[in-house]
Simulated scan of single mutants.
Amino acid sequence: MPETKDNSLFYTCSLIEFIGREQKIERREVVDRLGQETIEHIFDFADVLHCEPIKKVAIEYIEKCNIVPGQYDNVSDCKYTVPSYWDIGKVYSRLISDLFEEQEYVKGLWQVYHSWISDLLSDYNTDFYYQSRGYIAECYRQNKVLS
């Protein structure tokens, strides 16, 4: 059975979330600072990178891509239990895999992180990020939060 790239996508999204929290910047800005080529590299080598502590990997990419700290702190702003970076990575990776074919995961990652839904997924004071994956995907498809 061929190996899917879902785990690579999950790791890549979790690393983006970790870097965003570490540097206090919006996740689309993490994606911009990493750039398409670096994201493709992370995605392609996620099976190797995940063997290291995620903080170590994050620091290497923060330094390599000169990702400077910002003022965006959705973790401190959260009034409730903060989801882990793995939890948010899973939400993003499921959304991307629900919307895009496996060969388009990196393209899909770029689109999702640059869309309106990324702001909503990063607001931990709402219940949106823990809605069902089907609901989140349908909201993205319809370009609005469904009632």
Rank of each mutant, 00 (worst) to 15 (best):
P2L: 14
K5R: 10
K5D: 11
N7Y: 08
Y11G: 11
Y11P: 14
T12M: 03
C13G: 15
L15V: 15
F18P: 02
I19T: 06
I19L: 03
R21N: 13
R21S: 13
E22A: 00
E22Y: 03
Q23P: 12
Q23I: 08
I25Q: 00
I25P: 00
R27Y: 10
R27C: 09
R27Q: 10
R27M: 11
R27I: 11
R28F: 13
E29P: 06
V31N: 01
V31M: 04
V31F: 03
R33T: 08
R33V: 06
T38C: 09
I39M: 02
I39P: 00
I39R: 00
I39S: 00
E40S: 07
H41K: 03
F45I: 03
A46N: 06
A46D: 06
D47A: 05
L49V: 09
H50E: 12
C51W: 13
P53M: 11
I54D: 09
I54L: 05
K55M: 14
K55C: 14
K56V: 13
K56I: 13
K56T: 15
K56P: 12
K56C: 09
V57T: 14
V57R: 00
V57H: 03
I59E: 14
E60R: 10
Y61D: 00
Y61S: 01
E63M: 04
C65Y: 04
V68L: 14
P69Q: 12
G70Q: 03
G70V: 06
Y72A: 05
D73C: 00
N74G: 12
V75S: 03
S76L: 04
C78T: 10
K79W: 03
K79C: 01
V82N: 03
Y85H: 11
Y85T: 12
Y85D: 08
W86D: 12
I88G: 03
G89E: 02
G89V: 04
K90G: 05
K90F: 02
Y92M: 12
Y92H: 12
S93H: 04
S93D: 10
R94D: 08
L95G: 02
I96T: 09
S97H: 05
D98V: 04
D98Q: 07
F100M: 14
E101Q: 07
Y105I: 10
V106N: 02
W110V: 15
V112C: 00
W116P: 14
W116N: 12
I117W: 02
S118W: 03
S118E: 12
D119Q: 06
S122N: 05
D123L: 05
N125R: 00
D127R: 07
F128I: 15
F128W: 11
Y129R: 04
Y129N: 09
Q131D: 11
Q131T: 12
Q131A: 05
R133V: 08
G134A: 09
Y135I: 08
Y135D: 10
C139D: 13
Y140P: 11
Y140G: 08
N143Q: 14
N143H: 15
K144W: 03
L146W: 13
